[in-house]
Computed example of a mutant assay.
Amino acid sequence: MTQLKFRADRGFVRAYRMIAAVSVLLLLAGFTPQAYGAERGSVTNLPLPRYVSIKSAEVNVRRGPSLTHRVDWVFKRKDMPVEITAEHGHWRRVRDRDGAGGWVHYSLLSGNRTVIVDQDMLPLLSRPEQNAPASAQLEQGVVARLDNCTADWCRLSAGGYRGWAPKNALWGVKLDEVLE
């Protein structure tokens, strides 16, 4: 009987070693849950990080996830895109394009997607093609509403104009993100 138990333990040890070896190989190959969008928010179960926008013209950004924490600074622009990096109860830790961040109450955030133009005088094209005619040019820092995205292009609307822009010229959308 002791011998049987020993064999079962050896089998368990072998299986444990095999799982550990595979885990190490995956880590060495660069596989992490975060790299593949596997990380999820503990409250919403939505992917982290993810982009949203600021809902109102003034939003307090706090040092921690409660009203008792000090206000470090204030967002002063409605529709500004931000990236949610963590969740805690009704609070979301966000950061802006410059990397500045803090905690914001979820009710002050919107699921409406916007982006910031990262390239000066970005042509807004009539089709998602490099040589398509431009309907407008957007200055660097313009906040535009995000309509949809293909693998390389996003359809935007800003200032009454609508058109396509290369995804790599925008902040507020992941390079591998496709939106319909």
Rank of each mutant, 00 (worst) to 15 (best):
P49N: 00
N131Y: 03
W164Y: 11
A15K: 14
G159R: 05
M80R: 11
V115S: 01
P65W: 05
Q137C: 11
S157C: 04
Y16H: 14
L4Q: 13
K55Q: 13
A144W: 09
V13G: 01
F12P: 04
Y106Q: 13
P47H: 05
H105C: 06
G37P: 00
W73N: 02
P49W: 00
D152I: 09
V143I: 15
T32G: 03
D9W: 14
L26N: 02
P47G: 09
S42E: 12
N112C: 06
R127I: 11
L26M: 05
Y106K: 12
R155W: 05
Y161V: 06
F12H: 14
C154D: 03
N112K: 15
V115H: 02
D176V: 10
R145T: 15
F12C: 12
H105I: 09
Y51G: 06
G172Q: 03
L4I: 12
V52H: 11
R62G: 02
R77W: 03
A136D: 08
R62T: 02
L26G: 00
L25E: 15
G163I: 02
Y36L: 04
R162V: 13
A100C: 09
L122T: 00
V142K: 11
L67C: 03
S126M: 10
G159H: 06
H90T: 07
G30V: 00
R7S: 12
R162Y: 06
S42M: 06
A144R: 06
E177P: 02
L175C: 06
H105M: 10
A169W: 09
L25R: 15
Q137T: 12
L109T: 08
N131R: 02
R97Y: 08
V178P: 10
A165L: 10
G141M: 05
V74D: 08
N112T: 14
L46T: 13
P133R: 12
T68Q: 09
S53W: 05
E39F: 04
A35S: 08
N45P: 01
R10S: 15
K167L: 05
R70I: 05
L27S: 07
G99L: 00
E87D: 09
R50F: 03
P128H: 10
H69G: 04
R155H: 11
V61T: 11
A21T: 14
R92P: 04
W73E: 05
R17D: 15
K55M: 09
S135W: 07
S107N: 07
Q3I: 15
P166G: 01
C149T: 13
I54T: 08
A169I: 03
C149Y: 04
V178K: 09
